[in-house]
Design a protein around this nucleic acid. Structure first.
Lengths: 184, 184
DNA sequence: GAATATACGGGACGGCCATCCCGCTTGTCT
DNA sequence: AGACAAGCGGGATGGCCGTCCCGTATATTC
């Protein structure tokens, strides 16, 4: 097995991760790895040693954030009325996306295969989402014919990358439209 | 003023345009210009003389297709009940997108600024769409608060680039959802 | 059918970027 | 403190692609 990372390496790794998270969130997936290294104050080699590919770096970033969101989904699934729980999570994802351009890029399939990642990994968005959707459908609150891919596509729509300012009013309208569309 | 193109030049231009249309439709905007030249059986220089940039090539392709769609929109605006006319056009665009990956890329903002093109040019999608939307709203058939950007975003959602097979069933579901969401 | 402008082909160029590598530095362990 | 492995920086490399250029070929015109 591998020994624990040296102290400076741990610091650097954490710093890169943090800077990458901020940068991807603000500027999307198209930002060069060099730039992230520069902002983190490390060499590009340091980034690529910890994260061999750009994809793996983004994945690490996404993982942290998603783990949190998925936990929230579970909490929602426990308590509230099924339909409300579903829309609460959907709305949460929209808010997240509004603040995270990288996530939007991933959802839109620009430079990252979200589907593969979402099904393969520890956090599974699709899974937790699926449960919320299914519960809502069984309770008769949501259209019975909708599936997770539909939901994901609608989410991507709410986060349209071309919308200049993702202003709150537009988000609210989109949410209202989707909500009405998905209610049974 | 410029003289008429030489006969071979006209042929080549037309051929490039046609091949580009097919290629962009089938494989999206990420296909290299070299590849289009190769398939058209011409040199890359020939392509870039007729269309100085890749963007201008795609624009020329898009223009032809859009002109047709916009004409259809006008016809629809003339006849049917306002709400139906709007959804007929929306559905038409979804079908078009299902068969045209390039259009989907443009709508998703991947490598082309659709908004700029759509407002700047002769064909104006936004304009003709706006009229259909407005008529529907005035007739009380559509939500009064929706705007064109919302509609465009919903369309982009219906055409989610990550959906492997844009199967007809999924398209129908998405249309049904959006329809219910937009009806007043 | 010769003269001339027009267009062609496709190689060259330059920019961008992810990834790899290696000489040097710095933490770690005794 | 000294030795050694672990990690660092950032330049080098290679691939991809859009665009430009120019020597050659061909349509047009007289």
């Amino acid at each position: 097995m591998s020994r624990p990372l040296r102290a400076d390496a741990q610091r650097n790794r954490a710093r890169v991760l943090q800077v990458a998270a901020e940068t991807f969130a603000k500027e999307g997936l198209s930002v060069p790895v060099h730039e992230i290294a520069r902002r983190a104050g490390v060499g590009t080699g340091t980034v690529s040693r910890h994260f061999p590919t750009k994809e793996s770096l983004f994945e690490a970033v996404l993982l942290e954030r998603m783990a949190h969101l998925v936990r929230t989904a579970s909490d929602l699934a426990g308590g509230e009325e099924p339909g409300e729980a579903f829309f609460a999570f959907f709305s949460l994802m929209v808010e997240e996306g509004a603040a995270n351009k990288g996530l939007v890029d991933a959802l839109a399939g620009a430079g990252y295969d979200f589907n593969a990642a979402a099904t393969d990994h520890a956090y599974d968005v699709m899974g937790s989402w699926g449960r919320l959707l299914q519960r809502g459908q069984e309770a008769g609150a949501l259209r019975a014919d909708a599936d997770i891919a539909d939901v994901k596509a609608l989410l991507a729509g709410c986060l349209d990358r071309e919308r200049d300012a993702l202003d709150p009013a537009a988000r609210a309208r989109m949410l209202a439209i989707v909500r009405r569309g998905l209610e049974s």
